[in-house]
Amino acid sequence: MSSAPLHDILDDIEGLAEDEGKVDVKSLLESFQARSFGPVLVLLGILSMSPLGAVPGIPIVLAGMVILWAGQILIGRSHPWTPEFLHSIEISEDQVGKFRDKAEPATEFVDNWVKPRLKWAVGDVSEYLIAALSIALALLMIPLELVPFAVAIPAGALVLLGLALMAKDGILTLISIALGGIVIIGSIVGFL
């Protein structure tokens, strides 16, 4: 298990883009399969937190994708299935490079903190709990789309949940589950 999960993902994405001059969603998912659903949740959370998440309709699409993938954890799939029409979405090597340049400081910071620990807090039960929380957070993203950049709050919790899955970090798992619960309860109270 790598002690730098985000850096490894960036390396994989960049390597795929360099090989072909671009990378498509199908290639990304195939490279992530061995590492479970964590990278997908992290990527969807980051996209939701980015300026893309402020574009009308995009948070609903991203929320639907989170529900699709997290739901697959709940039904026991070992790797994500995705609809065929998403496979052809492409990101150019130049776009990947720009994203990496912007993301590198944050990934180094995060990778310095996450590592496999507290194994008792990481397992099937925590994976199912993370999946259920991810679905609840995705459902929150739909009404929060109406408030500019409010989607970033549940999206940030999604990133932490995905990191916990990737790094098998028990401390991060407990923190992300608690934070996800707080965001959900806070949002429900806020809506009432």
Rank of each mutant, 00 (worst) to 15 (best):
A17L: 09
L172D: 01
L43Q: 04
A150Q: 09
I153W: 06
S36A: 15
D169F: 05
G57P: 00
E93S: 07
I153K: 07
M1K: 14
G170C: 10
L140V: 10
M1H: 12
V110W: 06
K115P: 00
F99R: 06
E108P: 03
G186H: 07
V55Y: 10
I142M: 08
I67K: 12
M1Q: 13
V55D: 01
F32M: 09
Q72P: 08
I177G: 02
L16Y: 07
A150P: 04
L129P: 00
I58V: 15
M141H: 08
V96Q: 03
S2T: 15
L161N: 04
L163T: 02
R117S: 15
S36R: 11
E93W: 06
G64Q: 09
E104K: 15
P105F: 08
M65R: 11
I188G: 06
I67H: 05
G21H: 13
F191Q: 05
A164N: 06
A34C: 00
I58C: 13
V25I: 10
P56H: 11
L47E: 09
I142L: 02
G180D: 02
S50E: 04
P148A: 15
P51C: 08
G181Q: 03
E30C: 02
A167H: 07
R100P: 00
D11E: 14
F109L: 14
V55H: 13
W81T: 01
S36H: 14
V147N: 09
D169C: 13
P148N: 09
V110E: 04
I75N: 08
I153P: 06
V110R: 00
S88A: 13
G45R: 03
F109G: 03
S126A: 12
V189T: 11
F37K: 03
Y128M: 06
I60G: 14
G76V: 00
R100T: 04
S48L: 09
E104Q: 14
L140C: 12
L146Y: 11
E30V: 15
F149R: 12
E145R: 05
N112E: 12
P143T: 11
L62R: 04
G38P: 05
G156M: 05
A70K: 05
E20P: 00
I182F: 15
L10D: 03
E30K: 13
F99S: 08
L62M: 08
K119V: 01
H87A: 09
G190E: 11
W69I: 10
E93L: 12
M1E: 03
R117K: 14
L68A: 10
G123H: 10
L86S: 09
G180E: 02
K168A: 08
S36V: 00
W81L: 15
S126Y: 04
K119E: 13
I91C: 12
P105R: 06
E127P: 00
A34K: 15
A34T: 12
G57E: 09
S126P: 01
A54M: 15
S2V: 13
I171H: 02
S2F: 06
F109M: 14
S88T: 12
Y128H: 13
S78L: 10
K115G: 11
A54Y: 03
F99Q: 04
G57H: 10
A152Y: 07
L44F: 07
A167Y: 07
